[in-house]
């Protein structure tokens, strides 16, 4: 579905990604594992058109999307939950969700469905997003991305700074999206928290994509995890 084929990308003259290839398939969770600074977030930004690719192509359902403007990418059905949430902090909870609805034109029905997935947000619709707790902010960032009714969902370290019960909740939503046929790319530092729900894993190291394996292999053999994530 979403395919990166030998992508190069970087910031200004600093090249970060080199020959990155990976593929997200519908109804699957692809996890990207790698050390700090390996380039995982940059991969997400390259998909979203926020950093320019200098070589390679990104295709979605066979269509080349690597030359689209950044604001056209979400309209292809890619939802993004960035690292650090990056909510529109001075807008209300409701307005943040409405920002997601701009893309899907989903209106009240979609809004209601998204809120039903995160009941704690319902009583806080008029609260400024920046004043939410960390867990609530992550819910809102997820709700905002789901409001665009994505076919592909990018999650960049969604469990960062969250307590176990919240991690569990996020994990359930991710699994639910997968089971509805969404292609999920999930970046995580906490391998133990997500390995059980991953279908495949691609390791990222120094801006290169390395092995891609079925997650079941990693459950029995931890040596690759030691090598790329260094637990």
């Amino acid at each position: 579905m979403l395919v990166l084929d030998k992508i190069n990308a970087g910031y200004g003259s600093a090249q970060i990604l080199r020959d990155v290839s990976l593929e997200a398939k519908p109804g699957e969770i692809l996890c990207l594992f790698g050390r700090n600074g390996a380039g995982k977030t940059t991969i997400m930004k390259a998909i979203m058109g926020l950093v320019r690719t200098t070589a390679g192509v990104i295709t979605l359902g066979g269509q080349n999307i690597s030359r689209l403007r950044a604001d056209q990418i979400p309209k292809c059905g890619i939802g993004y939950i960035p690292q650090g949430r990056r909510l529109f902090s001075e807008l209300t909870v409701e307005e943040n969700i409405e920002a997601g609805l701009l893309v899907s034109n989903g209106g009240q029905v979609v809004k209601q469905r998204v809120l039903d997935m995160f009941p704690p947000l319902k009583s806080r619709l008029d609260q400024q997003a920046g004043t939410l707790s960390g867990g609530e902010q992550q819910m809102l960032a997820t709700a905002r991305a789901l409001a665009i009714e994505p076919k592909v969902l990018l999650l960049d370290e969604p469990t960062e700074g969250l307590q176990p019960s919240m991690i569990e909740q996020i994990r359930n939503v991710v699994v639910q999206m997968r089971d509805e046929g969404v292609a999920v790319i999930l970046v995580e530092q906490r391998v133990d928290a997500v390995l059980s729900i991953a279908n495949r894993v691609t390791f990222i190291e120094n801006g290169y994509s390395r092995e891609t394996l079925n997650a079941s292999v990693l459950n029995s053999d931890k040596s690759l995890l030691d090598k790329y994530v260094g637990v």
Binding site: M48, L50, D71, P82, R86, S89, E90, L91, A99, L102
Partner: peptide, 24 residues
């Protein structure tokens, strides 16, 4: 209005505004 929402979102975070389809 919707236009106002787009404007305020752009003001707060250009990149995220684009990732939500706003032509900044």
């Amino acid at each position: 209005t919707k236009a106002g929402l787009m404007m305020r979102a752009t003001q707060l975070d250009r990149d995220m505004a684009q990732s939500f389809g706003i032509p900044v």
